[in-house]
């Protein structure tokens, strides 16, 4: 029984460690959450891959030299030895074919070294959930909609973290009820 407990403990710690460290030596400090961890870890780990809130995340894995959509499919895909590949939030019909050429905006990380030090501190990613007008009202989106038209990519499925997971994925026209907030100012005449 002693060994069983130790085994379980090491197992969990191992998972925790592997979550914080990419197995591929090319990309030492990138983390790809696996299916289970995605629920808790995806937003935080993805935020680490952005220069600022709104910047396209750096690709979390090495270049497999294949089409991104091989794994980043509509329902995502568990990639053995790598992690969970979520769907893309970009809609088909906006963003000038943004889904056509992913590496126009998302780049691979091939080294940890920096050319020179920088004091750039980008806007932190807002991980808070959207506010409601009243307890029964649908929450307002806390982010812009542009390039995030495919709500299901982040709000349903294994990549959706708990706080923002949608409990009514069958209703596909999200903007019918959820508005995107563009300003914090109020209407004045």
């Amino acid at each position: 029984m002693r060994w069983l407990g130790l085994f379980l403990c090491l197992g969990v710690l191992g998972v925790a460690a592997s979550c914080g460290k990419q197995t591929d030596g090319d990309v030492p400090d990138m983390a790809v959450p696996n299916r289970g961890e995605a629920l808790k870890g995806s937003a935080a780990t993805r935020a680490k891959r952005r220069a600022f809130d709104g910047a396209p995340p750096v690709i979390a894995h090495k270049d497999f030299r294949m089409a991104c959509t091989n794994c980043h499919k509509p329902k995502g895909m568990e990639v053995p030895g790598v992690g969970f590949a979520p769907n893309m939030p970009h809609g088909e019909t906006t963003g000038l074919s943004a889904v056509a050429r992913c590496v126009q905006c998302h780049v691979f990380k091939t080294t940890d070294k920096k050319f020179r030090q920088s004091s750039f501190a980008g806007l932190k990613q807002d991980l808070r959930t959207g506010k409601r007008h009243h307890p029964l009202a649908p929450p307002v989106m806390p982010h812009a909609l542009f390039m995030r038209e495919n709500c299901q990519a982040c709000h349903t499925g294994p990549a959706a973290r708990e706080e923002i997971r949608c409990d009514h994925p069958e209703r596909t026209r999200c903007t019918q009820c959820h508005l995107a907030r563009r300003t914090t100012t109020e209407f004045t005449r």
Binding site: A51, V107, T111, D112, K113, S118, F120
Partner: peptide, 9 residues
């Protein structure tokens, strides 16, 4: 820019 340099160093 860290992200750009680290992509093509």
């Amino acid at each position: 820019v860290k992200e750009l340099h680290q992509a093509v160093p």
